[in-house]
């Protein structure tokens, strides 16, 4: 088999997509920002013209100034770093445990019958309800916050992995059996790659919950972090600071999700799916 024979059609594909994607991408990005941009402009105009006071709902320009000042003073970086570190630690912990339990209960009927009912019962508890207990057990510093985030991340990952392993096509598993794969090899060569697409989705929803729970965690007392900025803004009557923190959440939440999706993309090129882009 010669190299040119294979590379030719692929090179053509790349050329074609390189010419095509940016244009449609740009268009979809534009469509995506159109609505928020329009609303921001309207709000700015209504404050400028004196239609509204903007005291409780500051106009975009004031929020941007606040963000800029926080950034200039280096405060924003500190808060982002603190929050991101908490989310990352909690996410890692919750995702690892969720993956292990999900794989175990998906693969083994005994483990599922033993563990799943208890885990489902725990899932029914609103995670915020753990806060007082975590504070008593782990103190008011980082440990209790990371634990709460980990609990939030655990359940979607656990459910996603367990369900994905259970729904792997029997026909594909039989291919493994006919070639005499067993136990670990079957998991490594058939089950893991087969569940990868749903696993990535489970991780992404877990990460989303991680960002949700970090706010709750930081509400329970923190001296830094984006959640602290929120509480501080409320106590000192600074709605622009609250909105600045909210916008920062939106941006880094979206960025971290895109990062996770981008890391996963090369492993999912084989997928034969209906939709190409989100």
């Amino acid at each position: 088999m010669s190299a040119t024979e294979i590379s030719l059609p692929e090179a053509m594909d790349e050329q074609r997509s390189a010419a095509r994607i940016p244009k449609s991408r740009l268009k979809s990005v534009w469509l995506g920002v159109l609505l928020p941009l329009l609303l921001a402009l309207l709000w700015e105009a209504s404050v400028r013209t004196g239609l509204t006071s903007g005291r409780l709902m500051p106009p975009p320009s004031r929020i941007i100034t606040t963000l800029w000042n926080l950034w200039q003073s280096g405060e924003l970086t500190t808060h982002i770093a603190a929050t991101t570190l908490r989310v990352f630690s909690g996410f890692a912990l919750g995702a690892i445990i969720g993956t292990l339990f999900g794989a175990l209960t998906g693969y083994s009927l005994l483990a599922r019958r033993l563990l799943d009912p208890s885990l489902q019962a725990l899932r029914a508890i609103p995670s915020i309800a753990w806060v007082p207990l975590f504070i008593l057990w782990l103190g008011i510093f980082e440990e209790s916050k990371v634990a709460l985030i980990a609990v939030g991340v655990f359940f979607p990952v656990y459910l996603g992995v367990s369900g994905a392993v259970l729904s792997v096509d029997r026909k594909i598993v039989e291919v493994g059996r006919i070639f005499r794969l067993s136990g670990f090899e079957l998991v490594r060569r058939i089950l893991l790659p087969a569940v990868l697409p749903s696993y990535i989705i489970a991780l992404r929803s877990g990460l989303g919950l991680g960002w949700m729970f970090v706010v709750a965690a930081e509400f329970m007392g923190a001296s830094e972090g984006l959640g602290y900025l929120l509480v501080d803004g409320q106590q000192l009557g600074k709605p622009d600071q609250i909105l600045a923190a909210i916008i920062t959440f939106a941006i880094i939440g979206k960025l971290s999700d895109s990062l996770l999706a981008a890391i996963a993309a090369p492993f999912l090129r084989w997928e034969d799916r209906f939709g190409r882009e989100a």
Binding site: K171, V175, L196, W270, D272
Partner: peptide, 8 residues
């Protein structure tokens, strides 16, 4: 059916 593994 061919039952090829789609990820390989």
């Amino acid at each position: 059916e061919p039952r090829l593994l789609p990820w390989l």
